[in-house]
């Protein structure tokens, strides 16, 4: 038999810490990866995914800048965003009527995975890591010292049968 080199693979242990959304890692001040035009489209797309309602939307919460900062640290993400934005017509996307924009995004969403999912994943991670998304929208109250932990106070939840 031929001498075969033991194909060894270095494993980079990636510790999946549930604490930190992916997009929360890069500093917001980093120089972005996207052009102003692309960023404008990204802002619109972010708002189509998480719009302003009675609470702030994705753009209000600064999501586009957070995604841009993430892209500036991750080449693959930057390319995917650029290509995805181009595939929607680049700046021309902004000239579409809102319902046309929604229709375009619905078409995009019908392909599983791909650009739509990337976009959605990043908008969600970013939005729900901001004060607007986590506190104003979802009502998160954690990460504060308490004297006691009340837990469930509802007898109807505590029944065994």
């Amino acid at each position: 038999m031929k001498t075969r080199r033991d194909a060894l693979r270095v494993l980079t242990a990636s510790v999946a810490l549930p604490i930190l959304p992916v997009s929360a890692a890069p500093p917001a001040a980093a120089t972005g990866a996207l052009s102003p035009e692309e960023l404008a489209v990204l802002a619109r797309l972010s708002d189509l995914i998480i719009p302003r309602t009675d609470t702030p939307g994705a753009a209000d919460a600064g999501v586009p800048a957070l995604i841009d900062a993430a892209a500036s640290k991750k080449q693959a993400l930057a390319s995917e965003l650029r290509e995805g934005i181009a595939s929607l017509g680049g700046s021309d996307f902004l000239k579409l009527a809102p319902d046309e924009q929604t229709a375009a995004l619905t078409r995009l969403a019908s392909t599983p995975g791909g650009f739509f999912q990337t976009l959605k994943d990043h908008v969600i991670d970013a939005y729900y890591s901001t004060r607007e998304g986590l506190v104003t929208e979802l009502g998160y109250q954690g990460s504060v010292p308490l004297a006691s932990f009340p837990g469930c106070t509802h007898p109807e939840h505590q029944r065994l049968d």
């Binding site: 549930p18 604490i19 959304p21 189509l48 995914i49 998480i50 719009p51 309602t53 929604t102 995004l105 969403a109 999912q117 959605k120 994943d121 969600i124 991670d125 729900y128 890591s129 998304g133 986590l134 979802l138 009502g139 998160y140 109250q141 954690g142 990460s143």
Partner: peptide, 16 residues
């Protein structure tokens, strides 16, 4: 209530 909502990526659709 968690410090994020990454489960949402698996919910369908977008928008309001």
């Amino acid at each position: 209530a968690q410090e994020g909502a990454s489960f949402s990526k698996q919910l369908p659709g977008f928008g309001a």
